[in-house]
Amino acid sequence: MNIAVCVKEVPSGTSHKRLDPATNRLDRSGDSELNPFDLHALEEAVQIREGGADVGEIVAVCMGPASAQRALQKALALGADRAVLVSDDSLAGSDIAGTAHVLAAVVAKQDADLVILGQQAADADCYVMAAAVADYLERPVVTQVADLTVEGSGIRAKRQTEHGYDVIEAPLPAVVSVSDAINTPRLPSIKAIMGAKKKPLETLSAADAGVDSGRVGESGAQSIVRSVAPPAAKSAGVTIEDSGGDSAPQVVEILAGKGLL
């Protein structure tokens, strides 16, 4: 069995997130990192292998600018055997369906039985990519998976919905998105980081990837940003820097002052 993990490069949690007013696209000029939710997808792939399943290879797949190679280096350090980056100026500005089309096109070339995604991207806060990719691939999908087992030629997945937990079974090949509670991602060792540099990292153009150019990029995007505005003003809260629990009396005083105690 082969596993593909779809990953994304996002602005790092500590860098300032903003839209570029000229393009209304995300400003990617600051620091970036591997989407934190994707760490759980990579970890799950590695745990499936370590759990004794016969995993041939784990390939990390990404669409993004050239800088996304760094995110893929991290994916390799975390246990992917090789990585594929689709990077092409024509893809910038793709919408969700366009991005799913690209990921599906690349995954389809990887001979992957199980495709794993994180539950959402930290920059867009959407949780729709897995189901969109699955539709393009015409494969079963289970999203928001909190527990995943590979059993023979299928998977058994527990997902959380508004009604509790559902257990869903599906034959391979299949697509899943995993919750950020499914596992605790490991930190890569120095040896793994060094080893990652020797693993294959292939960069494909949109044409190499077999992408339908009409569906991608700004011209192919079916959703269009009309305007960007600041949200309604909200009164700023009080911030207290704590040291060893010394903020407790102050918090109690504030709550008492508001009549909440």
């Binding site: 969700i96 799913a100 729709v128 990519m129 969109a132 990719v133 999203t143």
Partner: peptide
Amino acid sequence: GVVSADVAAGLAARIGAGIACE
């Protein structure tokens, strides 16, 4: 909703439509 979001996403791919989340 989990099912609603999955239907919306699958449909966006199926008919090549734009989708606005959240």
